[in-house]
Each structure stands twice: as structure tokens, then as C-alpha cells.
């Protein structure tokens, strides 16, 4: 939640989570986000994880 409401790029996610300093050219991040969404967002009407097209993802608290 440290980066709430801030867009976090795929590259930063790879670096912070897996210590990968490059884009491995896979859809691994998207898959993980998808899995995360299923657990965090799917059961609820209000979504926390948002995709910012061509930029990354952001975690926004419900208003």
C-alpha cells in the first residue's frame, strides 16, 4: 500500500518482486496480476487493482 494511487510499471514490479532488472519478454506479470485480481477484486464490487494502459498498474483505495 506504500504506492497507493501511484502507477507502478511492469519493469518496477519485476525489479521489486523478483529482482529482475530487465523485461524477460513473458506475460508473467500480467498472469500474476490476473491471479491477484481474482483473489482481491473478483469477490467485491469495488476494484482495487487498475490497469493504466501502456504505463502499468495502480492500486486505488475505494472512495
Amino acid at each position: 500500500m506504500e504506492n497507493a494511487n501511484r502507477v507502478v510499471s511492469k519493469t518496477i514490479i519485476l525489479e521489486k518482486v523478483w529482482d529482475l532488472n530487465f523485461d524477460p519478454g513473458t506475460t508473467a506479470v500480467e498472469t500474476h496480476i490476473s491471479k491477484l485480481r481474482q483473489k482481491v477484486d473478483k469477490p467485491f464490487a469495488e476494484q482495487l487493482i487498475h490497469t493504466v494502459r501502456n504505463m502499468g498498474y495502480s492500486l486505488r483505495a475505494p472512495r
Binding site: 523478483w18 529482482d19 529482475l20 513473458t26 508473467a28 498472469t31 500474476h32 490476473s34
Partner: peptide, 13 residues
């Protein structure tokens, strides 16, 4: 272990 953690969800799918 790290690469496994990265790719396991994709493998599951």
C-alpha cells in the same frame, strides 16, 4: 526458486 515463483502461475494457466 525465483524463476519458478515468476512463471508458476502461467504454467498453471
Amino acid at each position: 526458486e525465483k524463476i519458478y515463483d515468476l512463471l508458476e502461475p502461467g504454467a498453471q494457466d
